[in-house]
Design a protein around this nucleic acid. Structure first.
Lengths: 104, 104
DNA sequence: GCTTATAATAAGTCATGACTTATGAAGGCA
DNA sequence: TGCCTTCATAAGTCATGACTTATTATAAGC
């Protein structure tokens, strides 16, 4: 998971507010510029980020094409949780704790 | 993030199909029993899993009380993505690529 | 041409954490 | 009580990866 690292999530959220140059991202975080470049490389390979040269700078921004697969991934993940909840609802523990939700 | 590790996700998904003993989980994965116990400890501290003694075994299962916060976390996270998408929709790149979604 | 700004790569350090084997603790059963 | 099963903890190994400094490449301005 490319978004497991907190620094990478911070970079991602920073870019969520709009495209930024590498130096701009580096200034907003307590890490060096090469570290930012390395993180951006990972994010780019994961399809979550795109870059575009602008003069001698390079503007990074969220890649909207990557949001779809990410969304699907999260949805699939969450379906697992719902299945788990259903398994719980059908279990004895649910009866003991009191039903939090009526059976559909 | 307690679910960053793939082994821990496998354990979580295993428990999503129903409560299991530690040995049962260990049999379903190519890691030793102590490793499973250590992972379960992390998941338990994260509030994602609960345990209950049953005889000399210990049954672990998804903690439904932890699903709410997890859901909120995912939702907040995804809101960030939507904001990013909106930022993209308002940008020049969106105009160049063609609007994927009309402005609300 | 040369210098400066910006970003990527190289190379290496270091902490984190996932895993192992060995051992201890506690419950069920003869 | 002693034995066996089940799980947790201790202690240590080892790989991964996040970070650093140093260097290289490309674009802009003199």
């Amino acid at each position: 998971m490319a978004l497991a690292d907190p620094t990478r999530r911070a970079i991602f959220e920073k870019l969520a507010t709009g495209g930024s140059s590498v130096a701009d991202v580096a200034r907003s975080l307590p890490v060096s510029q090469p570290a930012i470049s390395q993180h951006l490389k990972v994010l780019k390979e994961a399809g979550l980020v795109r870059d575009e040269p602008e003069g001698r700078r390079r503007i990074y921004s969220i890649d909207p094409a990557g949001l779809g697969p990410l969304r699907q991934w999260l949805d699939r993940f969450w379906e697992g949780q719902l299945a788990a909840f259903k398994a719980f609802a059908d279990s004895d523990a649910a009866a003991a704790a009191g039903p939090a939700k009526p059976e559909p």
